[in-house]
Write a protein that binds this DNA or RNA. Sequence first.
DNA 1: GCGATTTACTTCGAGACTCGAAGCAAGGAC
DNA 2: GTCCTTGCTTCGAGTCTCGAAGTAAATCGC
Lengths: 156, 156
Amino acid sequence: MTDQPLELVVRASHEISLLTSDRITEALEELRLTLATAHALWAIDPAEPAPSMKVLADRLFCNAPNLSFLVNQLVERGYVARDVDANDRRSRVVVLTEEGRRVRERVMRVTLEQSPFAGCEPEELSRLAAILQRVLDRTGPRPSTRPARGGSERTG
Amino acid sequence: MTDQPLELVVRASHEISLLTSDRITEALEELRLTLATAHALWAIDPAEPAPSMKVLADRLFCNAPNLSFLVNQLVERGYVARDVDANDRRSRVVVLTEEGRRVRERVMRVTLEQSPFAGCEPEELSRLAAILQRVLDRTGPRPSTRPARGGSERTG
DNA sequence: GCGATTTACTTCGAGACTCGAAGCAAGGAC
DNA sequence: GTCCTTGCTTCGAGTCTCGAAGTAAATCGC
C-alpha cells in the first residue's frame, strides 16, 4: 500500500532535498554560511532587480523578523548590503556585494555538484525539468525565484 | 544562463519541499507536532520492524542527541514508546503507539494532499516516480525509509 | 575470566533558527 | 493634519541542532 506513486514522489523529493542539504553543510561552513543563510543568499539573483525584504521573505517562506535576522548574518559577513528603496523609503532592498556574488556562485556550484540529480542523463534531466516546471506553474505564481522565461514580468 | 535543467530541477525540487512544509505546518500544530517531529513520526513505518535510535537518526540525517530530543517529544505526546532491543541491550527501538499510528496516518494524508505533486496526472506522476526512484537508487542504498520492493533485506 | 576498546544512547550546554508582539518610520486616504 | 496601512526592526521565548562528556552493554585480545 506504500507503493502509490504520489507517496513515493513526495518522499523521494523530500529525501533528495535532505540529502543535498546534508552533503553541502560542510562546504558551507567554509564560506561562513549555514543552510538558512545560504538559501537566502541563493535567492538573490544579481541578474534581477534587487529584492526588498518583503519579497525575499516571501521567496524563503519566512516572516519579516526571521528575514531581518538572516540578512543581518549576511551583512555581517559582507555578502550583502541594505539600500533604501528610492521609490518607497520604507522599503529596503538587499544588494549583493562583490564578494557576495562570488560566494553565491560557489554555493550554487557546490549544491548542483552534490545534488543526487547531478547523476542524471541530460535527457532525463530535461524531462524532469519539464515536469517540475509544470508542477510549480500549477501552484500559482510564486514571488519568483525563477523569473518565468517567456515572462510578462514587469520588474521595475 | 540560469536555464540549465540541473539548476531548474534542484531549485524546483527544493521549492516544492518548502512549499509543502509551509502548507502543512498549521495542520501539524493541531496534532501537537512540528515539522521535525512529524518527519520523525513519518519515518517509523509500522509495517516494518521497529527501528533503533541509530537507524532512525540515519534516516533523518541527524545525529544521536538530536534524535533523542525528537523521540522524547514523541514519547511525551504519547505517539511512540522506547523498547530495549532484546538482541542488543544497548539499543532502543522506537515503537508506534496506537495513537501514534493514527496520527502518522493523518500526517501522511495531509502531506500528500497539500503537496504540489497532488495536482499531477496519474501518468505524469508515474513518470516522475520512476525517475526519482532511479535517482535515489543511484545514490546508494539509504538506511531505508523505502524498503526496496524486490528487496533482499534481512531485517532480523 | 578480565581489562581495553567500541558501540548505542543520553544529558548538558551553547549556538542557530523561527515566530509573535510591540514599536518606529514612511506612504496613502481623506 | 489625522488616521490607517505597510515595511521593517527589535525583543523575548520556544524549537532545533550539534559537540562534548558520561553511562551501559557488547566485543576484542589475551
